[in-house]
Design a protein around this nucleic acid. Structure first.
Lengths: 185, 185
DNA sequence: CATGTCATGTAAGTGGTTACATGATTTT
DNA sequence: AAAATCATGTAACCACTTACATGACATG
C-alpha cells in the first residue's frame, strides 16, 4: 500500500474529515516532512472506500456545498496499526540546493547567493511557524494523549530547521568574501 | 529537464565516467541528500547522448569489460551552468518515521522503540562517514577549487545528522518511561 | 568453483505532479 | 462585481523503483 493511504488513515483516526480538509492539514502540520497533492488524495479516498478502510459519513450535511466527510472503519484502524508496527521504509530526501552547492564553483556568485537567501527565508519561516505551533500545543496542556508525540514531531522540525539555518549562515560566507574584496577596491 | 540530467552533467564536468561509476559516486558522496537508480541513469545517459549534452569517449579501452565512458560536451556545460543559475525548485522531503511518530500513541511501544533505534543507527553511520570524508578532504588541502563547496555540503550533512541524533535521543525517552515503570515492579 | 563486483541495460508497474474542469460560497 | 476560498474530481504526463536479464572478470 502506498503511503498516502496511511497518512489519510492516521488523520481520519483523529476525526472525520473531507478530502479538502485532509490536504489542508497535511499542508499545515506536516509541511516540513510530508506532502500530498489533490491528484493523489481524491483517487486514494475513492479506492479506500472501495476497499473498506474508510466510509462516507455524510454528504453535505450542514451546508449546501458539495462535500463528502470520510470516517475510518474498524478495518482501517487495524490496517493503520499494522503499518505503524512495520519497519520504516527508506526515507526520501532530495535537496536540489545541495547539488547546486556541490557544483557551485561553476555558478555565478550572485545566483548562489540568491539560492541561499531563498533557502534561508523559507526555513526561517518554517521555524517561526513551528515555534508558534509548539507554543499553542504546550498551552493546551496534555489533555490529549497524543500530545507528547505532536510535540516530538515539532521538536524534530525545530531542530532540523535550526541546523539548516546554522548551515546557511556559514555557507553564505563562502560567497560574501568576494563582496568584501569588491568593497575594498 | 529532470534533475537526473543535471546530476550527471555535474559529475561529468569533473571527469569522464561510466554509468556504473556515476551511480557509485551518487551513492557514496550524495547519499544523505540524493539518490538515483540504474533504471534512471542508463536511459537518461542514452537520451543525453542523443541531445548532444554528453558523448561517448570510448568503449572498453583498457579492459575487455563492456563499458562506455561518457564525457560532457560544451553544450552540456552550458546547460549545466544555466541550470545552476536558475532558482532552486521545491525540495522533496518525506520522512515516514515522523508520520509514525505523529500517530505513535496508536502503536506498540516496542515497535516505536525499534523504529527509533533503526533511525539512530542509520544516521549515526551517516555522520561517521561524513566525519571521515571531511577529514579526508581537509587533508588534501585546497588545491582543488571546488574544495570549499564540497566541505560545505559535508558540513550540511553533519549538522543535519547531528540534529537527527539529538532529536532521536529525546524521542526515545517518550517510550522508555514505561520500561522504568516495568523495572520498578 | 562459487561468490562478489564490474558493467549495461529493459520492462512493467507505481507513485506523483500539473493542468484542467466545474461550481458554490464568502469576503473584499 | 470580482476575487478568494471551499470543494471535488479527471487526464495526461513524468519520474522513479523494482525486478529481470546478461555476462565478464576477480577474489577467496
Amino acid at each position: 500500500m502506498k503511503k498516502t493511504t496511511y497518512v489519510i488513515l492516521g488523520l481520519l483516526s483523529e476525526a472525520p474529515m473531507t478530502g479538502y480538509q485532509i490536504k489542508q492539514v497535511i499542508d499545515i502540520r506536516f509541511k516540513f516532512f510530508w506532502r500530498e497533492s489533490y491528484g493523489q488524495i481524491f483517487p486514494t479516498l475513492k479506492a479506500m472506500v472501495e476497499s473498506g478502510d474508510i466510509n462516507i459519513l455524510d454528504i453535505a450535511p450542514q451546508n449546501n456545498r458539495a462535500q463528502k466527510t470520510y470516517a475510518i472503519t474498524p478495518q482501517g484502524t487495524a490496517n493503520l496499526k499494522t503499518w505503524l508496527s512495520m519497519p520504516v521504509e527508506t526515507e526520501m530526501v532530495r535537496l536540489e540546493l545541495l547539488l547546486k552547492m556541490y557544483f557551485g564553483n561553476l555558478a555565478d556568485r550572485e545566483a548562489m547567493q540568491s539560492h541561499l537567501a531563498a533557502f534561508q527565508a523559507a526555513h526561517q519561516s518554517d521555524l517561526d511557524q513551528l515555534n508558534a505551533f509548539s507554543d499553542e500545543v504546550t498551552k493546551l496542556l496534555d489533555q490529549d494523549e497524543n500530545h507528547p508525540m505532536v510535540l516530538s514531531v515539532i521538536d524534530f522540525g525545530q531542530k532540523v530547521n535550526r541546523a539548516y539555518l546554522a548551515w546557511v549562515e556559514a555557507a553564505q560566507k563562502l560567497f560574501s568574501e568576494g563582496d568584501e574584496a569588491d568593497a575594498a577596491k
